[in-house]
Design a binder for these strands. Structure first.
Lengths: 221, 221
DNA sequence: TTTGTTTCCATTTCATGCAATCTTAGCACG
DNA sequence: CGTGCTAAGATTGCATGAAATGGAAACAAA
């Protein structure tokens, strides 16, 4: 039962599995997440479930009210826009730094990511696509040489990618122009041009944010 | 025994107390933090201690190795610089946004913070000073209107303030020019001038980062 | 000495029971 | 019809024992 991913502890397993369920829309925004419930479903005790929930809370994906419990986040449109504003700034900062110090090895890693993205694209594998997309952006953040910045980028990526799942029921992998945009970004990085890379990244992020809209059947809107 | 601050749960109490111990140098960078140890000292069981440690880990203040345990972070000089770079960008972004939408009420709150800072200054109360200083910066971040940005600023503030404690044994509250700088920032905000406010904030942060140096007696350096 | 192996101990990780707390439903009252 | 109260049920918070893990010490072999 515990196959999909690697994990070192039960808490980590629960964490990854919950994230998987969020990405695959098995869990809905605002839904309550009682500990026992999840524990029974995953065949573990409440303790690692608690830990996983709190970790998700620290990433902003669930909100926990003391003595009341956890529920999946149900971000407002404004919150999502705020998250994207922040993501844009963080990623643009990261890519400026990355453009000046990225190595050949790191560039190849980016190219591999794009190839994997194409594969996910042809297979119409939304989950894989999101994961590989995340890898691409994370790799750039790591190439910035600022590990703390990379952590923050990873965090905001996790949020926005979940928001994409929440907020864009029409998200269509077929019309997504990310792949050529990613290629252009790699080009700018290999030219070691911070300005160009940043401009392309900004355009890329604005583009992917643009067609997000509030979910249809969420009573809170 | 559980007086110093408000808390809703034991885990929260342990979290706050650990933070207090870090700020007051009762705990040293790199020090191991065994659960039982802390639990006994604080008169609670291991469970809430685990929770507090993991929360501190998510803020980058302690590092946890699975099956091995937690230890207090021992940031390198580079890590500290990286944190400050990030802090500068986040806070500058926040203050630009804040300058355009800050209310009278929020401005008064900032002025109150500075008054409290002066009080801590005269009392040479380092802990209170750090706390009030944090309040000032947090208040600006909240005035940005971007709640997620404010969360991130709060996080990086927590880090850098701990780094200050770790890294600057000479940190001298008497020669710290923060108070007039804070006043100048409030001035720019009340003028609703994003450019001026940002410039002052940047200068302020660079100034306070400048005289940080690696601790003397840390074997890892 | 160095390297490898085994045992033991410290510590984390997890499961579980119980107490504390919140939520909800039902009912009385204005 | 709405508001406030009460009791039952659901859920979290915490403590604690047991299992799993990792690392250090002790020892043996090269």
């Amino acid at each position: 039962m515990r196959e999909p991913r690697f994990y070192t502890t039960s808490a980590d397993y629960v964490y990854q599995d919950l994230r998987h369920r969020i990405i695959t829309k098995q869990l809905k925004p605002g839904q309550r997440l009682p500990e026992v419930n999840i524990a029974v479903q995953m065949g573990v005790s409440r303790t690692p479930v608690r830990e996983a929930l709190r970790r998700l809370a620290s990433e902003g994906l669930v909100s926990i009210i003391p003595n009341s419990g956890a529920r999946l986040a149900s971000p407002t449109q404004k919150e999502m826009e705020n998250a994207y504003v922040l993501r844009e700034h963080l990623e643009c900062l990261a890519i400026r730094l990355a453009a000046e110090r990225i190595t050949e090895r790191q560039l190849r890693r980016l190219e591999d990511s794009v190839l994997e993205e194409e594969r996910a694209f042809y297979e119409k594998n939304m989950e894989l696509y999101l994961e590989v997309n995340e890898n691409f952006h994370r790799a750039i953040a790591e190439a910035s040489g600022n590990r703390i910045l990379a952590e923050y980028v990873e965090n905001i990526l996790a949020r926005t990618n979940v928001y994409i799942v929440f907020y864009d029921p029409f998200y269509n992998i077929e019309t997504n122009p990310s792949i050529p945009q990613h290629r252009a970004i790699i080009g700018a990085l290999s030219e070691k041009s911070p300005e160009k890379a940043e401009a392309l990244m900004r355009e890329h992020l604005r583009f992917s944010m643009e067609d997000l809209q509030a979910p249809k059947d969420n009573p809170e809107f």
